[in-house]
Amino acid sequence: MATLVQPAGPFALGTFSAPDGDPFPGLLAGERVLDLSRALDSAPSDVRAVLGRWADTLPLLRALADDDARDWQPLEGLRVHAPVEPRQIFQSGANYRQHVIDLEVAHRSPDDPRTVEEARAEVAAVMDRRAAEDLPYVFIGLPSTVAGPYDDVVLPAWAEQPDWELELAAVIAEPAYRVSVEEALGHVAGYTIANDLTDRATVFRRDMKAIGTDWLRCKNAPGFTPLGPWLVPAESIADPGGLRVTLKLNGDTMQDESTKDMLFGVARLVSYISQTSRLLPGDLVLTGSPAGNGLHWGRLLRDGDVMEGTITGLGVQRTRCVEEAS
């Protein structure tokens, strides 16, 4: 396990297991963990069950975090899994202004007559218009992509250009359907870290350009969404629009941006999604990736690479890339 970086606030949630034991929902306070399947009268089987009774359970978690008489376990020696198993993953695309500009320039056709400066200016104008017209862009991901924060990432043999995308993820508590922007954050239990890996070579369909993007192919390989380590309650994050998102590759900083660069914040995204879909406890809303992806640097992921991702107050995840066995 990576070196512990304490999350913001007095406690966080996670999913843990002892060696050869079954995963259990846990309360992390300092460097100790309390098994919530035993500590709570509702005997939740997983973190999603904890979130399903969030309004009632949150005060109990605050009290448990200070209860030294409970049967706490040391974090050291426990395996840390993804903090929650979502039923639905909603992913925001093109939500960081600088990131979209960088990608558009990198994906330009060789015969594009525009200079780099002209291309950047045109895309910047499009981003500003999207923000003014209030039109987020959201697509769906598969729960089977979720992996633990310290698990190896298997790079599929077919993925020619695997890339990183570190993102802030909001975790839903109370079900949300057709909620307003003002109501939306009341449905968010907390936040965690997601690395939304993408194979850049398969983002766009080559056989029929009119079809557009192929999110199934480029983003949904098993383990392509390392998640966690912790679910930090929203009450411990003063402003989700003012967090630092940083990814290091083999020790070198590649992404380092504030969530202030988002076109649409968490409340707007949750509200927008809820106008079409019913958000459920444990669902993830990925808020998009800031600038600094591999395509920008001309350096994609390969066997042996180590990614270390951190977001202010949410801890650190550390994953190693491994080639798929032939």
Rank of each mutant, 00 (worst) to 15 (best):
A221Y: 13
A234C: 11
S92V: 14
S17V: 04
M208C: 11
L64E: 00
Y177W: 13
L34W: 08
L75T: 03
P226K: 05
R129E: 15
G304W: 07
A291W: 00
L301A: 10
T253P: 05
L61T: 02
P240Y: 14
D71S: 12
L227F: 06
G77A: 06
L168C: 05
T213I: 10
Q88L: 09
A132D: 13
D199R: 06
P229S: 11
I273N: 14
E183W: 00
N95V: 05
W297S: 06
A147G: 13
A221R: 03
A325S: 15
W158I: 15
V105E: 15
A39F: 02
H99Q: 05
V322Q: 10
E182F: 10
A194R: 00
G141Y: 01
T115H: 09
L36Y: 03
L280I: 13
L142Y: 11
G26I: 00
S45M: 07
G294N: 03
S274G: 12
L64H: 09
L58W: 08
L168R: 08
T225A: 12
G251R: 02
D163A: 01
L142H: 14
S326T: 12
P162K: 01
Q98P: 06
T312G: 12
F264Y: 15
G93M: 08
N293E: 04
P74L: 03
A194Y: 01
I172M: 04
G223H: 14
R129Y: 12
V100A: 12
A238Q: 11
A29G: 03
L36C: 01
D305F: 03
N250C: 06
A221T: 09
Q91I: 10
V245M: 04
V84I: 10
S45G: 13
L301Y: 01
R318N: 00
G77N: 07
